[in-house]
Amino acid sequence: METQTAPEMLQLYRETFPAVAAMLRDLGADPESAKDLFHDALIIYLEKHHAGTLHIDHTPAAYLKGIARNLWRRSFRHQLPLTSLDEPSAEELYYEENQQDQYLITTSLLHLLQTTGKKCMQLLQAFYYDQQNMEEIATQFQFSSSRSATVQKFKCLEKLRAQLKNSVLYEEVVA
């Protein structure tokens, strides 16, 4: 997977934030909410970049403005259920998850972290979020083979799954 380095990210931030901030100001955002929306837009942009679903005919600034505009509009419709028959957009999914997962900050997140273990969470993130392959993960986490890393990954997932059983998030999902 192609990832952006910290200097590349800084450059992207420097080049695109002013244009996005100006657009959000015109929509009524203050500096703090413009920054927060820009961060959310960047995260969606990077996830699309990792997944290879960006359209190359758009510049990063145009992309980020579009995503930020959608997030801004979505924030005013947060009490309305989704009624569109179309597939929800990345912005819609991100917004919904973000709203629901705020529970995690105040409830079980710290407990989950402590019990699942930092190394386990790093391993799970490397595979499921950063989309590194098991060979890379085996090297990075010093496993003897990619198969050992795979087995450990499932053991970590099982630990997390067991911890989640009594969490607010799970209760919400099954409700």
Partner: peptide
């Protein structure tokens, strides 16, 4: 199966929180 789906969400959430902290520093 449902818990496994929830686990993927937690992993995604935590990765995004880390990324947000890095973006705050960058800002």
């Amino acid at each position: 199966v449902t818990l496994q789906q929830c686990s993927y969400r937690v992993i995604r959430f935590m990765a995004r929180q880390k990324l947000k902290a890095a973006l705050e520093n960058m800002h």
